[in-house]
C-alpha cells in the first residue's frame, strides 16, 4: 500500500512535470485498481469498462486537485467511487447520458467495420459534406491522428472525433444503399 502510494506519487509527480511516459505508466498501473472499484459496484456489467474510462477521464481532468504532499491512492479511489456512483445514478435515472466532451473520448474503435475499405470510397465521400470527407481522408486513409487533423482544421480534438464517427456512420449507411442522407444522431 505505502509502496504503491510512493510509486504512484513519483509517477504522477513526473507526469505533472510533463513526462508523458510516466503519465501513461501511471494511468496503466491505476487502471486495475479502478476496475476493481467499478466492478465491486457493478458486478460484471457490460458497461463497466465505460465507467472505468469515465474514471480515467475524470482523473485526467481533475489531476490538478492532487497535491504532491497528498497520498495518491485515497485521492484516486475517492474519484473512482464518486464517478462510479455518479454513473449508476445516471443509469438509474434512465438512459446513459454522457456529456459530449466525455463522449468524444469514448467513441468506439471504428477499425472493425471500416466503410473506408469500400471499393468505391470516392463516390461515397462525394455523398457527404466536404469537411467530413476531409476528416475521413485524413484520419481513415492517411492515418493522421485526430489531434493533428484538429490542429489543421482549427477544431478541437473531441470535435474531430465526433465528426469522424458521424461521417463513418453516414458512409456506412450510404454503402448499405440507404440513400437517405440525414444526421446520424438520434
Amino acid at each position: 500500500m505505502t509502496d504503491r502510494n510512493d510509486r504512484w506519487r513519483d509517477l504522477l509527480r513526473r507526469a505533472n512535470r510533463g513526462e508523458a511516459k510516466a503519465y501513461a505508466q501511471f494511468l496503466t498501473e491505476v487502471t486495475p485498481a479502478i476496475r476493481t472499484i467499478v466492478l465491486g459496484r457493478s458486478g460484471r456489467d457490460a458497461g463497466s469498462e465505460d465507467i472505468v474510462q469515465e474514471v480515467l477521464l475524470a482523473v485526467h481532468a481533475r489531476r490538478h486537485t492532487w497535491r504532491e504532499t497528498d497520498p495518491v491512492a485515497p485521492w484516486l479511489y475517492a474519484i473512482a467511487r464518486y464517478k462510479t456512483a455518479d454513473a449508476f445514478r445516471r443509469m438509474k435515472r434512465g438512459g446513459h447520458q454522457v456529456p459530449i466532451e466525455d463522449l468524444a473520448e469514448q467513441l468506439p474503435d471504428e477499425a472493425q467495420v471500416d466503410p473506408t475499405a469500400a471499393r468505391d470510397l470516392g463516390r461515397l465521400l462525394d455523398g457527404i459534406d466536404d469537411r467530413s470527407a476531409q476528416i475521413v481522408r485524413a484520419v481513415g486513409l492517411e492515418g493522421q491522428s485526430a489531434g493533428d487533423v484538429a490542429g489543421g482544421l482549427g477544431m478541437s480534438e473531441g470535435a474531430v472525433r465526433v465528426a469522424y464517427h458521424r461521417a463513418l456512420a453516414r458512409l456506412r449507411r450510404l454503402a448499405a444503399g440507404d440513400e437517405k442522407e440525414d444526421e446520424t444522431r438520434k
Binding site: 507526469a15 508523458a20 511516459k21 503519465y23 501513461a24 494511468l27 496503466t28 487502471t31 469498462e49 472505468v52 474510462q53 480515467l56 477521464l57 485526467h60 473520448e105 469514448q106 474503435d109
Partner: peptide, 9 residues
C-alpha cells in the same frame, strides 16, 4: 482502455 490511456498521456 489502452488507447484511451495512450491518447490522454
Amino acid at each position: 482502455t489502452e488507447d484511451l490511456i495512450a491518447s490522454l498521456a
